[in-house]
Design a protein around this nucleic acid. Structure first.
Length: 863
RNA sequence: GCGGGGGUGGCGGAAUUGGUAGACGCAAGGGACUUAAAAUCCCUUUUCCCUUCCGGGAAGUGAGGGUUCGAUUCCCUCCCUCCGCACCA
């Protein structure tokens, strides 16, 4: 039925694909749409053509599309399919626009699930991991995403993780990696430590029902706090990031400006510093609170008249303190220490209490309590009958006779010695200044963010490249000796001990400094280290003299578009920014922010909740590929909702997507005869002078086609509402169906039909690339659509000639009139008033005003 | 409590700068084709009301108010819902 490439070659046109050895390329279209056959055919062709291989091409505009790399859990899920379908539509569009597109993928392949599976089945984690990677790679290839597979990065490979170790050593050199004993969050399920970012509502981020417990352990930390200010400051560059993500990061960093004030413990003559953002309220301070873990507590107990009693009381507070809490609202609790603190502003002595809501890690671990102007202090002092003194009045208003809650707003100072009468704003300034002048305090900035604890007592991660020597202490492994390899033979027990500690040949080593006997560090790194820089490695995954190659990074960076789930808003996306800043400081890169634009897609949900094994509502993508083909699954993913919103999976919805592709296939295969010799005018702007006069029917068809092309082009540039792009593509197919008679009877010339079908196929190439390539071949072209330049729409053809304008009388729609696009306002007015229906509504009334909005509507106002 | 989304037919969703509300798809109902079924094609489908088939009217985008010739869109008050943060001094 269709042309053969043989025929066309006979006419003298070159066609490299006709000789393709496979034998399926260049054959006529089948009558029926067979996605399995078509998708296999084109995936093979793409691979053989090295269609997605991207190389540095100086002078050519590049575009780096990045999607979050998957953890190899064994099977891809619908969230991946959605993420990668969005990325692929963009990558393909940018390729067709002529950009040199880098579109890589890799595996976030260290981590707990593989280790847990390994313990269960008594097989090495590497075995699971590599088997799963193979399986998921096949699944992703089945999806047909335009990845440059030569650039695949696997984070658990020594060639990759050695550079994690290298970064660690660089940070250690600069004092950014350090070890300290600290209270850590421990997940009894994971049998390891969690970063603060990984604790959600007091529970583990992976085990929502498992409360985190606390342990004191020697841990390695990365000093992200040194970068807190820059992480905030550089957000100015992130203009193309979702506001939501920036806000979440801002809250996480939690900058607050305040004053540190030196109180002193009167009985012991010890200094006691507190941090406050409201130094203007300090004359209302009636108590000082300590956290139960405050470093001075020991001394207080020792000096106490009743040390045992105080010790047990403090122990009680510790147990009820905010650390252990899982539920949201904790009763205020505390105990008086019997000691007193002297307020340096007025010399007053106030009692020192230990309170359960005071955090050790924030500020100085001690706070001045101003019950009249802080709600928490108010609640505490009310409970324990401590004095409350008002020192701030509302700027315009009387104080309440009886306080029912703290007045926490700014106001005017009273009862505040020399500062009485000042506004809060002025007082904060003056009082901080005076403290600095007198040396008992200073203005400071506090951050909520804490250093990033990266030690994990697990096996399947990057070994931390440090050595403990009895003579030299803690010694870094020299960079020349990297990687410190993860031993392959190991028995995993899951007891909570670092598994590496039981591997004698790993632990026993010599000191790099003195050559004496030494032990290796047996903790491994948090896997978020791996994902903090993997997207640099893609640009030159084989380079082995440095983590990155400057030439490659300079060409490909920044990442033009990063696409992934919102769940990484503060974890991965803040670590990644931190790493880049460190890389800048050590001279590896010249910029501060790696990602120019971020897009966070919505989740795929079913029956109202996120797909999960426990809920039993998981839809397996590979089963869908088998049933409908990858193109249908992609099309449905993009059609069912705009990409930033959650997407409801519907079994009948995907049927609709499948029906549509079948319909497109049928429609095109029906018309696509004899196209070989015909040249369309697509993309030729302006149309050549000799181009044909179109009939009304031809104009209608071309108008619709170019309007759809216009919409899709504009949408791809910014808005990404693929659902509307696909809806319009459906409208175009509907239009073709409606014009079936005109086409069959030859009233639409072949070049017009061909142009329309070309537009249809090239748009489809973004969302359903396999069928698009098949149809592209079917209508007389050769090769992949990816190599076809994205066609420019013709604004003249897309323009409407006649409009249907709604006519309103007093804002109510009464009729519609058809007018030429260029009709004058006078003409339109006359038309409208002359209309029979309109006349009914204005008869007997006075026309007050006639509003004509060009191209939009007419509104006649009557009285 | 604070911060940020969102609320449109039976369902997913359109309406991009204030200008025809419900595009497109799903589901449902009816019809054609078929021995039959599947597939496909055609028609109907916001609600209510009037009407003898033609056709016509009113209401309608969470609720109430405001601005405007005109509001899903802008402003105010409130309700619901989702997400993030949450004793951070």
């Amino acid at each position: 039925m269709l042309l053969c490439y043989g025929e066309r070659n006979a006419s003298g046109r070159p066609d490299s694909q006709a000789a393709h050895r496979d034998g399926t390329i260049g054959r006529p279209m089948d009558t029926n749409y067979d996605p399995q056959k078509i998708e296999a055919k084109w995936q093979k062709f793409w691979e053989e053509q090295k269609l997605f291989d991207a190389d540095i091409a100086p002078g050519r505009r590049k575009y780096y599309v990045l999607e979050m790399l998957p953890y190899p859990s064994g099977d891809i899920h619908m969230g991946h399919v959605r993420n990668y379908s969005i990325g692929d539509a963009l990558a393909r569009y940018m390729s067709m626009k002529g950009f040199n597109v880098l579109h890589p993928i890799g595996w976030d392949s260290f981590g707990l699930p593989a280790e847990n599976a390994a313990i269960k089945h008594q097989r090495p984690p590497a075995e699971f991991t590599f088997a799963y990677i193979d399986r998921m790679r096949r699944q992703l290839k089945r999806l047909g995403v335009s990845y440059d597979w030569r650039r695949e990065v696997t984070t658990c490979a020594p060639e990759y993780y050695r550079w994690n170790q290298w970064f660690f050593l660089k940070m250690y050199e600069r004092g950014l990696a350090y070890r300290k004993k600290s209270r850590v969050n421990w997940c009894p399920q994971c049998e390891t430590v969690l970063a603060n970012e990984q604790v959600v509502d007091g529970c583990c981020w992976r085990h929502e029902d498992t409360p985190v417990v606390e342990k004191d352990l020697e841990q390695w930390f990365l000093k992200i706090t040194d970068y807190a200010e820059r992480l905030l400051e550089d957000m100015k560059e992130l203009v193309r990031w979702p506001e939501r993500v920036l806000t979440m990061q801002q809250n996480w960093i939690g900058k607050s400006k305040g004053t540190e004030v030196g109180f002193s413990i009167d009985e012991l003559g010890l200094p006691l510093r507190v941090f406050t953002t409201r130094v203007d309220t300090i004359f209302g301070c009636t108590v000082v609170f300590l956290a139960a873990e405050h470093p001075l507590i020991g001394k207080l107990i020792a000096a106490s008249k009743e040390p045992e009693k105080l010790r047990s009381e403090v122990e009680r507070i510790k147990n009820s303190s905010v650390h252990a809490r899982v539920e949201v609202n904790l009763e205020k609790d505390g105990v008086a220490t019997g000691f007193h603190a002297r307020n340096p502003y007025n010399g007053e002595l106030v009692p020192i209490w230990v309170a359960n809501f005071v955090l050790t890690e924030y500020g100085t671990g001690a706070v001045m309590a101003v019950p009249a102007h802080d709600q928490r202090d108010f609640e505490f002092c009310t409970t324990f009958n401590l004095p409350i003194r008002t020192v701030i009045l509302p700027k315009d208003g009387e104080p309440k006779a009886k306080l029912e809650a703290a007045f926490t707003e700014f106001g005017k100072l009273v009862n505040s010695g020399p500062y009485t009468g000042l506004t809060s704003e002025r007082a904060i300034e003056r009082m901080t200044h005076d403290a600095e002048a007198d040396g008992f305090g200073k203005g400071t900035i506090q951050y909520r963010i804490k250093d990033w604890g990266i030690s994990r007592q697990r096996y399947w991660g990057t070994p931390i490249p440090m050595v403990y020597c009895d003579a030299c202490g803690v010694v870094p492994v020299p960079a020349s000796e990297l990687p410190v390899l993860l031993p392959a033979d190991i028995k995993l027990t899951g007891t909570g001990q670092s598994p590496l500690a039981s591997v004698g040949e790993f632990v026993t080593t010599t000191c790099p400094k003195c050559g004496g006997p030494a032990r290796r560090e047996t903790d491994t790194m948090d896997t978020f280290v791996d994902s903090s820089w993997y997207f640099y490695r893609y640009t030159d995954p084989k380079t082995d003299s440095a983590p990155i190659s400057s030439e490659a990074v300079n060409y490909w960076f920044p990442v033009d578009q990063y696409i992934g789930g919102i769940e990484h808003a503060i974890l991965h996306l803040i670590y990644m920014r931190f790493f880049t800043k460190v890389m800048k400081d050590i001279g590896l890169v010249s910029f501060s922010e790696p990602v120019a634009r971020l897009f966070t897609q919505g989740m795929v949900i079913k029956d109202g909740s996120k797909m999960s094994k426990s809920k039993g509502n998981v839809v397996d993508p590979t089963a869908m590929f088998e049933k409908y083909g990858a193109d249908t699954v992609r099309l449905y993913m993009l059609f069912a909702a705009p990409p930033e919103k959650d997407l409801d999976w519907s079994d009948t919805g995907i049927e609709g997507a499948s029906r549509f592709l079948n319909r497109v296939y049928r429609t095109i295969s029906k018309y696509a005869e004899n196209f070989g010799a015909v040249e369309s005018l697509l993309g030729k702007l302006p149309r050549p002078a000799a181009s044909p006069e179109y009939t009304a029917e031809e104009r209608n068809l071309l108008r619709k086609a170019h309007q759809v092309l216009r919409h899709v082009t504009k949408d791809m540039e910014d808005r990404w509402h693929f659902n509307t792009d696909i809806a319009l593509t459906m409208e175009l197919v509907n239009e073709l169906t409606e014009m079936d008679a005109a086409i069959s009877e030859g009233r639409i010339r072949t070049e017009v039909l061909k142009e329309t079908l070309e537009i249809l196929v090239l748009i489809l190439a973004l969302f359903a690339p396999h069928i698009a390539d098949e149809l592209w071949e079917g209508i007389g072209h050769s090769g992949a659509t990816l190599r076809v330049a994205w066609p420019a729409y013709d604004p003249v053809l897309a323009a409407e000639e006649e409009l249907e304008l709604p006519v309103q009388v007093n804002g109510k729609l009464r009729t519609r009139i058809r007018v030429a696009v260029d009709a004058s306002e006078d003409d339109i007015r006359q038309f409208a008033v002359a209309d029979e229906k309109v006349a009914q509504y204005i008869d007997g009334h006075q026309v007050v005003r006639v509003i004509i909005v060009p191209q939009k509507l007419i509104n006649i106002v009557v009285k």
